[in-house]
Amino acid sequence: MESNQNENKLYILFFLVLSVILLFLSSQMSWLRNYISYVYTNTSHDQVVNGRQVKNYFTLFSEIIEIKNENEKLRDENSTLKSQLDTISFLIEENTQLKKSERFLAKKSKYSEVNMFMGEGLEIGYIDLGSDNGVKKGGVVQYGQYYVGFIDSLDRSSGTVKLPYNRSSFIQVSVIKPTNIEGLNTDQLKRLVSEKTKSKAVAIGKGDWVSVENISTDKGVADGDFVITNDPKIGSYLVLGRIKDLDRDPASSSITSSIEISVNYYDLNRYIIEIQ
């Protein structure tokens, strides 16, 4: 046992001494290095490459997760940018419409832009201007030459707008022949109404639709005719919509119809309001 241990120590000593000798003679032993290199280096290099490939394979999973996260982030960013772009396009469109409608507005009156948000249903809208801003009760909210509603109640910084769909909304209207009304000003529209009126009628809100009642039977009112406000409480001629689904009851003394309202309240937020 002891002789074995002594042998082991001898081996250790021998190889250590050999290593130290090799260390000092390393520069003279280039032939040995070249020989080993010739035999082994190619294998060694190939194996290092193989090991790296396996390592890359494992790191691929983490990279896939990273790419996935980055993709999700980019998609989020893209959605945000898209929605921002939509908002900007919408604002530009709205602004263009408002600019176009400037021509239509009466020069003696003062107007202001107002934001209106819909309540539940189509009967009431809320505006962000109040009496402090010069808005008065009964004032008309319009979108260019289109009628939106009138101020029903008001406080200092906000108000509610009664829309044509409101069940307590009754508006005297004129039904006129379909014609090009784009770019007309107030006077031109007034002249058009006096020239082309087929019949007078009343637009009554029904909650989710608007009916036109008391249309004369013999005036040739047809689907697609324009419905223009002609009411002293509104004070100006504004487009409400077009006749749709005429109900011709032979037994009735007048015709009833529904109106296709021109303004989509859910798509628009900015309107014009007359102020004092």
Binding site: F15, L16, S19, L23, S26, Y40
Partner: peptide
């Protein structure tokens, strides 16, 4: 072999 692979002086790895 390790010495050759890493361009070390002979005997370095053993020591």
């Amino acid at each position: 072999l390790n010495d050759v692979t890493f361009h070390l002086l002979f005997g370095s790895t053993f020591i």
